[in-house]
């Protein structure tokens, strides 16, 4: 039970990191708080659902489609919302309200379009994808749960864990090995200085905004397997979880998200195992404790003021 819980926490923690990754990138670059994050995740989940039902597209290749589509949608959305917001007196606070409104709009439109019933994608689709990957790599795989360090886990957990790890790796490469990523880090360090050195801040930010939303959509693809089922109203819970993850990691530092996710995942699973009914209290206490002891998050810079 102890080892199973620990491993489950690690695997699920990786998925939690993916959940928070986009949100954190957005905050790091623009200092705005995207309360509609969970709703983008929900839209990604619905995309995977429709891809599966209309085109019989397996969720695993669906990940690539979701990423591309949401990245493209994110760019115009940035120019529509963010520059105007940043011009206001207190954009960091106002972003709470703006994106809360946006999350209501997304949820309302999704309700009108998709109805309110729960939807999901059959669990067997993950096993089929795993079988295809296994035959590609010449590995033996029987449909069903997968053994991982001596414990058996649903194959979707492993798939989500691998995709999450890949996403983190790609963000690392983007930020530290590409020119655009270099500029992005400059904006994260100081927006004002970036502007004064002639960086096209809006272009850098728009791309970060798009990537942030696209990462949410990728996490959304795994919702039917990791979070039970999809409904238009699911966004709020996801947003709150994502916040806990990135605050524990450290706001504004995308790579800190991994630490936050794993810490959150492991402690959540231990709580669920040993103090089941209190499981949802832990994230909030952890969040407050981390903020009070190390306000910048476990891997963050200094953020206190006066």
């Amino acid at each position: 039970m102890l080892i199973y819980t620990l491993l489950a926490g690690l695997l699920f923690g990786l998925y939690f990191s993916l959940m928070g990754l986009g949100l954190n990138l957005m905050f790091g670059v623009m200092r705005i708080v995207n309360l509609a994050h969970g709703d983008f995740l929900m839209l990604g989940a619905f995309l995977a659902f429709w891809l599966f039902n209309l085109f019989a597209l397996n969720p695993i290749p669906g990940v690539a489609v979701a990423f591309a589509l949401f990245l493209l949608a994110g760019l115009p959305l940035y120019y529509l919302l963010v520059p105007r917001l940043l011009a206001a007196r207190d954009p960091e606070m106002l972003s709470f309200i703006l994106f809360f409104g946006f999350s209501q709009v997304i949820e309302a439109v999704a309700t009108i379009a998709f109805g309110t019933s729960e939807r999901s994608i059959p669990g067997g689709s993950m096993a089929r994808a795993a079988a295809a990957v296994a035959s590609l790599l010449d590995l033996a795989y029987r449909p069903g749960p997968i053994a991982f360090l001596g414990q058996s886990f649903p194959v979707a957990w492993l798939a989500a864990g691998i995709v999450s790890a890949l996403a983190v790796l790609l963000i690392y490469v983007y930020l530290y090995r590409t020119r655009l990523g270099y500029l992005t880090r400059a904006v994260m360090a100081s927006r004002e200085e970036a502007i004064s050195t002639g960086i096209d801040v809006h272009r850098v930010s728009a791309i970060a905004f798009g990537i942030g939303i696209a990462l949410a959509a990728v996490a959304g693809v795994f919702v039917p397997f990791m979070l039970g089922s999809i409904t238009p109203a699911m966004g709020v819970d996801v947003t709150i979880t994502s916040f806990a993850v990135i605050v524990i990691g450290s706001l504004g530092n995308p790579l800190g998200t991994v630490l936050g996710g794993i810490l959150y995942g492991v402690s959540y699973m231990f709580m669920q195992s040993y103090y089941s009914s209190w499981a949802n209290l832990l994230p909030y206490l952890l969040l407050i404790a981390v903020l009070l002891v190390r306000p910048s998050g476990l891997l963050g810079r200094q953020v206190r003021r006066a």
């Binding site: 957990w157 990791m226 699973m269 669920q272 089941s276």
Partner: peptide, 8 residues
């Protein structure tokens, strides 16, 4: 709000 019961 519990959405995953695998560990349980």
């Amino acid at each position: 709000e519990t959405s995953n019961y695998t560990v349980l």
